[in-house]
């Protein structure tokens, strides 16, 4: 066995493999949850034929998509047309790589040094998340442009305008948390939230930054193109949006990217505002269960919101983003900065 294959290296490779598959599986789970929650909100039963309570329905859908014919429009820019869904998924999966979801495990003493539960700990982790989410826009823009169809192009243009507009508020909300934590590493941000106020309220940044959390989550919903901000795929106006011309699994890849992005935004929000894997009752090495619960709660909120709120009009979205969300985010940042300096 070559020298560089140590237990640590193997453990890391297994971890990367596991995280990637968890993300893909979580998007399958999200599809199921979305359909189930939607069904109950609309007083229906939802999928309940394939597997227990329809749990295997997403897999049936994926197999169906895989068996469909892959169509590329004649007038499309073939290279970019095929590249676009790949960029979307790659960006979505990569963004999760700096999110810590637990402390560290030794696998019952097998690993020395212990394995940290995250793919990599970069000291500028928050910026990495920000940078990679901003890469995701290329998948959608290219899909819209390369299809050479007006509906796709309109969807792509809308989405890029929307993502650029909300990215600023997103970044300003992040900056306020960075100032509180004094660090750009997500792991350190989480560690800074340990402990309780008066032995009761956890020291989450949610309570120090309620406005910041609201801004972050709103911008996150807009970034992931979800209702009530799902303009890139406003069916009534655009047929389907940027993916109008896509079929088979390349359509499925956009779907996958959207759900993985939702998971990432929720996971980052959990780390930044909800104390990440920290929680009572469970031993340290089971902290990832808390992480899972908090992330799932946010994801449920996502779905709940989609089936409750109607879609905004496009000009309302732009007005909201630039005239309300951005000024509020700036005020939040300035007030936070002043308080951090004043209180030390």
């Amino acid at each position: 066995m070559p020298a560089f294959i140590t237990p640590t290296v193997i453990a890391h490779l297994v971890l990367i493999f596991a995280v990637m598959n968890m993300l893909v599986l979580s998007s399958a789970f999200m599809v199921w949850m979305e359909r189930k929650v939607c069904a109950y909100i609309q007083d229906r039963l939802g999928p309940n034929r394939v597997g227990f309570e329809g749990l295997l329905q997403p897999f049936a859908d994926v197999f169906k998509l895989l068996l469909k014919e892959e169509l590329v429009p004649k007038a499309a820019d073939k290279l970019l047309f095929l590249l676009a869904p790949i960029i979307s998924v790659a960006a979505a999966l990569t963004a999760f790589s700096v999110v810590p979801f637990g402390t560290q495990i030794t696998l019952f003493g097998l690993l020395d040094p212990p394995l940290r539960l995250e793919v990599t700990d970069v000291n500028v982790g928050i910026l990495v998340v920000f940078a990679i989410t901003s890469m995701g826009v290329y998948g959608i823009v290219l899909a819209g442009w390369s299809s050479n169809s007006k509906y796709s192009l309109l969807g792509g243009l809308r989405s890029s305008a929307q993502m650029i507009s909300y990215e600023i508020s997103y970044g300003l909300a992040l900056a306020a948390v960075v100032m509180l934590a004094g660090s750009l590493s997500l792991r350190e941000v989480v560690m800074n939230q340990s402990g309780y106020w008066w032995h009761l309220i956890p020291r989450w940044y949610l309570f120090l930054q309620p406005l910041g959390f609201l801004i972050f989550f709103t911008a996150g919903v807009a970034e992931t193109n979800r209702a009530p901000f799902d303009f890139p795929e406003a069916e009534q106006e655009l047929v389907a949006g940027y993916h109008t011309e896509y079929s088979s699994m390349s359509f499925g890849l956009f779907f996958l990217a959207e759900y993985v992005n939702m998971v990432t935004v929720s996971a980052v929000a959990t780390s930044l505002y909800l104390g990440g894997w920290l929680g009572p009752f469970l031993p340290d090495w089971l902290g990832w269960i808390w992480f899972l619960i908090k992330t799932l709660a946010l994801l449920f909120f996502y779905v709940w919101m989609r089936w409750t709120l109607p879609r905004y009009r496009y000009d309302q979205l732009m007005e909201f983003g630039w005239k309300y969300l951005l000024p509020v985010a700036i005020v939040n940042l300035i007030v936070t900065a002043a308080l951090v300096i004043w209180l030390g």
């Binding site: 500028v124 910026l127 920000f130 940078a131 901003s134 890469m135 290329y138 890029s160 650029i164």
Partner: peptide, 14 residues
């Protein structure tokens, strides 16, 4: 490196 991605590859190229 990250600034390069955010500013150039992200904002300016969009």
């Amino acid at each position: 490196a990250v600034t390069q991605i955010i500013v150039y590859a992200g904002a300016i190229m969009v």
